[in-house]
Write a protein that binds this DNA or RNA. Structure first.
Length: 407
DNA sequence: AACTAGAGCAACCGCCAGAGG
DNA sequence: ACCTCTGGCGGTTGCTCTAGT
């Protein structure tokens, strides 16, 4: 069927030169191969318009959807009189034409939400977008990739782990026998090539940034003396709300953000996922949703081993003040987030067990405090743990561990 | 004015999960 | 249990615009 429509529509048919014949043949062969070997394409890609949408196409799609609503997207282009792939129509509607979308630039508050949520749940753009009314996952993703990632890097924060580069360096220095740095440190070394802000001048990376980023940078860089309970409440609330969204997303209609927004902004539900919370906790990884869930090790907790960023006392004082102030604003800006864990002590417990750096903003800071007293013993046990695992891996995969890493 | 590099963003691609047969 | 199909998602690409030289 696909082959037929391709041949009928192909411009090659109008001029059967030897070249076009061979092209047509190879095209047919590859197409029939793909038909026999895998799933057929959702539409005849060679026969649909691609690229930028015109105003006329937008008008057609809008007119059709406003009249009939969205149903089967593969039928929409046909019924709307569009020469487009159904998937393309869906994307155009979802990312651009939907009436509830905001096309303005992101506000500092939204920026802060994105950063906090990214730390909490990683690059789950659709989930993050559900917490930002009027924004699409594509918007958020683009904004993160083009702006926020660079901003964080310039501030000396690894956008993948949300840890200060210096901390990652310290960690790496203490566990230099680790075989694979790629998995552990994400984009750190990539980012380090482009930007590095000396930690002796923390203000240089912060000046001029919007409030949200200041807040975040202070949270990241000054755990000392900060209001741990507030920070903890915020981060735990994010996790709780994320869990709530995860559950709600099953029920809501995907294309109507108003419904999504209202379901997301509802107070933390008492039914919030007793079964979820009591089930085995999982670590959320940023690399890919395909490998996003990792069974946690019971032997150690990453956050127990985090180092804090050393600053001069004057910097500390200023950042402490900033942190107090901005955390308050964060809490007010995220009312449902902050309230999430209050009604759910289980959530608190579990979130604290989330050792991944991606999860626990406040918990990490608590641990940083404790780390002042217990850093050496913690780091020792951490190194022991890693070395133990290293030895196991060396025994299992000796050929993979021969490569050395020079920096 | 012409060229170039980088930023921003819309759109596409390929994979996956889930529904339905 | 298996297969097909659709919708959803995250990652990537490529076009356009703008600032710098």
């Amino acid at each position: 069927m696909y082959l037929q429509s391709l041949e009928l529509a192909s411009p090659l048919h109008n001029s059967p030169s030897p070249l076009s014949l061979s092209l047509s043949l190879s095209l047919s062969l590859s197409l029939s191969l793909s038909l026999s070997m895998g799933r057929p394409p959702c539409c005849d890609k060679s026969n649909v318009k691609r690229g930028i949408w015109t105003a006329a196409e937008d008008a057609k799609l809008l007119a059709y959807i406003s009249k009939h609503g969205v149903g089967n997207w593969t039928l929409v282009p046909k019924k709307a009189g569009l020469n487009r792939c159904g998937k393309s129509c869906r994307l155009r509607w979802t990312n651009y034409l939907r009436p509830d979308l905001i096309h303005d630039s992101f506000t500092p508050q939204e920026e802060e939400h994105i950063i906090n949520l990214h730390e909490a749940i990683g690059s789950r753009w659709s989930l993050i977008a559900k917490l930002l009314p009027g924004r699409t996952d594509n918007d958020v993703k683009n904004y993160w990739n083009t702006k926020l990632k660079k901003k964080l890097s310039k501030m000396g924060i690894d956008p993948v782990t949300h840890k200060p580069f210096s901390q990652i360096l310290s960690d790496y220095g203490n566990i230099s026998s680790l075989p694979s740095i790629d998995n552990q440190f994400g984009s750190f070394f990539k980012n380090l090539n482009n930007t590095f802000v000396p930690k002796s001048e923390p203000s240089s990376g912060i000046t001029g940034l919007p409030l949200g980023v200041n807040t975040y940078s202070n949270m990241m860089m000054n755990p000392i003396g900060s209001d741990n309970s507030t920070a903890s409440t915020l981060s735990l609330g994010i996790v709780a709300q994320f869990q709530e969204i995860n559950q709600d997303s099953v029920q809501v209609q995907p294309h109507f953000l108003n419904e999504v927004a209202s379901s997301c902004s509802s107070s933390s539900s008492p039914h919030a996922t007793d079964h979820q919370l009591s089930s085995q906790p999982t670590y959320l990884c940023q690399q890919s949703h395909h490998e996003a869930q990792i069974t946690p090790s019971s032997s150690f907790n990453w956050s127990e081993f985090l180092l804090h960023e050393p600053f001069s006392s004057a910097d500390k004082l200023k950042q402490e003040q900033d942190f107090h102030g901005t955390m308050m604003s964060s809490s007010s800006a995220l009312p449902t987030l902050a309230g999430g864990s209050e009604h759910n002590p289980k959530a608190t417990t579990q979130a604290c067990d989330f050792g991944s750096s991606a999860i626990n903003i406040g918990g990490q800071r608590n641990n940083n405090l404790a780390h002042d007293q217990a850093s050496s013993s913690s780091m020792t046990s951490f190194v022991d743990t890693i070395l133990g695992q290293d030895s196991e891996m060396q025994a299992a995969f000796p050929e993979l561990l021969d490569a050395s890493f020079d920096y």
